[in-house]
Amino acid sequence: MDLELKDIPGQLVNALVPISDAGGNIVSVVHHHAKRTPRGTIPIQVTFDFEGDLEALKFSLESRDIKIGRVNEAKLLEHRTVLIVGHIIHSDIRDTIDQIDQTGYAEVVDLAMSMPGINLKSSARIGISAEGKEEARKAMSLMRQIARKKDLLVIEPINSEDTQ
């Protein structure tokens, strides 16, 4: 999130408090003190993990007289790696990926394959990113269903069943 702060003391803390109060976990803060905007404000970039109500957070920042520039939402926070073994190409790997992507809450972000020979079983490593833990669990469950239909072996991560 890009913010613009007034050049008076205490403004950085003033901007970070609402983020942390809303449950955001601040990953990095870049303070461009030398790069003043034409409005005389100081641009900062804050990166944070946040699963709450973004509009409410924006309102809370604006009510502190902080101007909000660009908001770059990277929604996919949970990552799972899964292996599949079987006739991956013949059972349409593209469709497998599409089915995950079409959920809207998860997508395939990484794919590595190995095809030893025409009639031999192939193996693939698939990276799936999802919006949250619950969505990741749902994506894994979908992956399981697809594999059952296509007669593929799924090798899930050891922690995929964790409920916390």
Partner: peptide
Amino acid sequence: SITPDALKLAAD
């Protein structure tokens, strides 16, 4: 049905 390729992809 585990293949050496699957183990290699996992190891990578």
